[in-house]
Amino acid sequence: MKNLNRRDFLKSTALGVSAVALGATSVKGADKTLSEDRIGILVDTAVCIGCRNCEWACRVAHDMPTKELESYSDNSVFKEYRRPDKTALTVVNQFENEKNPLLPVYVKNQCMHCERPACVSACIVGALTKQADGSVIWDDDKCIGCRYCMVACQFQIPSYDYDKSIDPHIRKCDLCFERRKKEKLPACVNICPNEALLFGKRSEIIQIAKNRIKRKPDEYIDHIYGEFEIGGTSWMYIAGKNFEKLKMPPLGNNPAPGISESIQHGIFAYFVPPVALYALLGTVMWITRRRNGENDEENILKPHDEKGENK
């Protein structure tokens, strides 16, 4: 029985190790396949009026339970800071405007669809994938509910609908995958009365954002949040005040999976660790076998199991 167990363990370890290695390489390959025309969405916080119509449209588009649109004009929700969760894939928060307290700043939060997504890198079963168009989507059937993506995400976005243990569902913005298949705009972009959410090619969107900052230097700080943050994101923001004050995490320009991936890739390149491990185990086995052969005649009565454990 014991021999069988060990064999099973080794088998599964080898499989796991190679799976991680393969998974890592697939992530590495992802940014090579990113399209030149990939999606960019600009959130102009100076234009957003906090109507929260996007929250309503998002729920409707994703078949989530929602109240009537009229109820969304209730601004008492702004009293406390909210985060996207399994009941709301996007939320709008209100921030004070020091320049003019009568014109508050509103910031919409949702999955940023990173150019180098940490969640995809962390996903051990390859359920999350980065698409050529820039979106980060997932295969519900593959997801095992390990929640590694939740830990990996620096914006703390993915959440879980996990009421049944064998049926976990990731809940996060999918850039309206279903709607875009029908050549429709994402629901939030479509409903925004002020077009505070600008949908287009990422390269063009960045140019437009730069132009807006240039034209109104008094109104915006010279920073497009998401242009370079952790290697760039699909959703980008411009604002009149420091993004830290808008609770956007201050992140460097290095992609999140950078360090972990380089370690992984370095170690697992050319299948070195499994081969080394087997080589080591083989050597130990060979040495002990030889020693055993020498001692066999002397200790013929000693129980075999003990030696197995010593290994």
């Binding site: 234009v47 009026i49 009229e70 004009s73 508050p104 925004c192 002020n194 077009e195 063009e204």
Partner: peptide, 27 residues
């Protein structure tokens, strides 16, 4: 998309200043 669409153009004219629109009543 560098120029806002018509819906946004109209809304921005009003809402740019009237950000304190009465949320109780809705649009």
């Amino acid at each position: 998309v560098s120029v806002p669409d018509l819906k946004a153009a109209f809304h921005r004219q009003c809402m740019g200043c009237h950000k304190q629109w009465s949320h109780d009543n809705g649009c």
